[in-house]
Write a protein that binds this DNA or RNA. Structure first.
Lengths: 131, 131
DNA sequence: AAGTTATATAACATACTAGTTAATAACAGC
DNA sequence: GCTGTTATTAACTAGTATGTTATATAACTT
């Protein structure tokens, strides 16, 4: 059976990665250029393994890759997932603005009928209760 | 002691809210106008309490408010947190582009010195190891 | 070879997430 | 006041996230 709504695991991981202040700070730092884990971890009072795990989350989200240069593992930013996140926000904005466009007509409509916005809800709602 | 990096719990909650496909779908639906929990939950094969909890997450993130109209609790979108999320992405993009601007000069620099990008890392790194 | 530095992994504790079913609350309409 | 509808809350389970300390791995240094 097909899902009735978009399943986007990459977008899930991207937004989840952005939901932690340490990882956001790391990404901002990486926007300026590659950096080693120790440099990325320096601003945080947090153990070295914790930093390593945050980098792992960023890597799983496709936001960075870790390369090798001697004992350093410089992290390089990949911004494609962020573009995807941005696309979602743009799609949202588009829907929002479409709605504003429709509002003009809707306000006209209100002048002619009841202003109880839930009336339509009641009429439409019967066909799709969950249980 | 002050944190060495920006702590933004609202942004944390916003991105975390966006990290679930059901909640993203709900927000897109709400961009078109208010809706009841049952309407919002209709597309998903998921119990009604689960829907209610997702709405709670959106409410905690400030993305919706739940009003009362008889036994219905119409959900209304508030897009301010999404604007904040968008701002973060814009800040990121700004840093990214600043970096590209600097790259021109950097490439000049490479022609004069070693191309081992980690050399600088080694020199800078000593003063801030964690542990 | 032995020591140091940089980083990752293992093992663990704790908290949070996301789902379930069952119970409860608020309201509409007969 | 009973009954059905809408929605939330309670109690629980399973899985994931985030931190810790201890240990392992890899590469440079002497």
């Amino acid at each position: 059976m097909e899902a009735a709504y978009p399943i986007q695991p990459e977008l899930d991981r991207t937004f989840a990665a952005l939901a932690h202040p340490v990882r956001r700070a790391m990404l901002l730092r990486l926007a300026a250029g590659p950096a080693s884990p120790s440099e990325l971890g320096a601003p945080f009072r947090m153990s070295q393994p914790a930093i390593s795990r945050h980098l792992h989350v960023l890597e799983e989200a496709g936001l960075i890759t870790r390369e090798r240069s001697a004992q350093w593992r410089p992290c390089v930013l990949h911004k494609d997932p962020l573009l995807e996140a941005d696309s979602w926000l743009m799609e949202f904005r588009r829907s929002w603005e479409e709605r504003l466009d429709r509002l003009d007509g809707y306000i006209e409509h209100l002048h002619e009928t009841s202003s109880d916005i839930m009336q339509k809800e009641r009429e439409d709602g019967r066909e799709h209760t969950n249980g």
